[in-house]
Amino acid sequence: MDVTLVIDGLPVTAGEGASLLEVARSAGCAVPGLCHHEALSAIASCRLCLVEVRRPGHDRAQLTTSCDYPVSEGLVVTTDSEEIRRHRRMNLQLLRRRAPRAPALLQLAEQLGAGEALFEPLSGAPLPDCILCELCVRTCAMLGYNALSVLGRGDHKHVGAPFGQTVARACVGCGSCVEVCPTGCIAMEETATTRTVWGRTHELVPCGGCGAPLMTSAQLAATAARGGLSRERYDLCETCRRAALSEGLASGARG
């Protein structure tokens, strides 16, 4: 069901329950945020996507994170105010302790006018530059591998292989965690035939057509097992698969 709300003075229509952050962004509002991904449920970790929301029947607006706020009829939303900016800047300053050099944070600092780093950078974190947004862990879980885990709590919290093991044994080397990481803190090294990530080196399987690296052997095996099909059904890259498909269709039409 669609609902209508007001964001920064303009009426916006959106599906009920949609993430306010996504709705505001698609309405053109520049709401910052580092821990949200549209494919994953929000955990509201970074505390940068703060907005003010006034619910119908309420006199006062309430400061809230928007990624985990579901839109409903009649909300009046402000995405920018002095108070919002002040808190966003402070939370960004807190994140900068963990990832002082990360381009995404430096860019945000500029955008938000946060100025110089306010606090000493943390040293000795198990994964330098990690801002603990859990995107890697959540993505890995969503893909069904569950190779990564959140460990510890408080200022000892970190991400890594479950139970503090040095090698993520369930990792298939798909690299999705690297893709979603906002600070680029997950190390992944590739040669022509191997990929090393989370303490494991995986063999890269070449495309059966063009020979370019396709995916890791473990990922191919996992994907084939999940699909219940033979490995051969997955051995072409997307370009070659399309080519093969159109070739097949063409030969069928000729035949």
Binding site: S45, L94, R98, F119, H156
Partner: peptide
């Protein structure tokens, strides 16, 4: 409190630790 924070949100995890500092 900094040690017992669950560590999910920046404000609490980092904020309490910095306040302690």
């Amino acid at each position: 409190l900094a040690a017992e924070s669950c560590g999910t949100c920046t404000s609490c995890r980092e904020g309490l630790d910095v306040l302690h500092g």
